[in-house]
Amino acid sequence: MTLFNTSTRPRRLRLGAVAAGAAVLALGLSGCGPAATSPSAGPDSNATENATAELSGTLNVYAAASLKQTFTELAHEFEAKNPHVKVSLSFDGSSTLVTQITQGAPADVFASADSANMKKLSNAGLAKDSPVDFASNVLTLVVPPGNPANITTFADAAKPGVKLVVCAPQVPCGAAAQADAAGAGLTLSPVSEELSVTSVLGKVTSGEADAGLVYVTDAITEGDKVRSIPLTLANTTINRYPIAAVSTTKVPELAQGFIALVTDSEGQKVLKNAGFGAP
């Protein structure tokens, strides 16, 4: 292949090609993600239900991308309470995570951004107990700080000429966007139906789009990089977040402990501060 025919090229370029190859290899390896941290139950993992029993080992938590901030905080809290425990977090779209888990990824806890993806886990027989809802989220309209299209209501965003970006109907935030538009009696004509809520947010913060539909928690995370305009609907579509231990977990006590932290008052406070609604 001519591409790799280095025989007549100067040495400099050949080194460049090697570096490129190494970079490609490194990228490929970095994609392997959390598989390296396999759950390893420590010597104390057979501890009883005794509240003072010390937990140890590594807990792999797979959580929806919108939980990144809150779950990172909760993981630190969990580690602080259990000094011998390490929490390894993996954030991605819920459907990506559930695919990884059903294909054997070493997850101990799965927190989904919608019930549909949690159902996939249950249907695969991989949910240890029945999932528990721990938070909820609703959509909001966001515009760039300058509000170039002068949007003040949900209806403004549906006007022709406005560059509105939403999630595709196939992803949870897109399904909610469709339902909310129907509830408001609006027909949306977006310039792009993104594959994830993060992409929608990116298009708004970069000023590419005039408006976008994202979760209220996303709008709060972005701070003053976006302006939030509430949808003010009679019936907002509420997205519920369920959490469950994965049945193949080797550290069930850790998984249970983490889920307890998320669902009890302490975890709920963190979630509420981030803008999540009560389950």
């Binding site: 970006v165 977006p190 310039v191 792009s192 139906e193 993104e194 594959l195 992409s199 990116g202």
Partner: peptide, 17 residues
């Protein structure tokens, strides 16, 4: 494509998207 062009059927949503 995803980052720069977005994703809309018939306009920017190519096969990989």
């Amino acid at each position: 494509t995803l980052t720069f062009a977005g994703s809309l059927q018939g306009v920017t949503r190519t096969m990989p998207l």
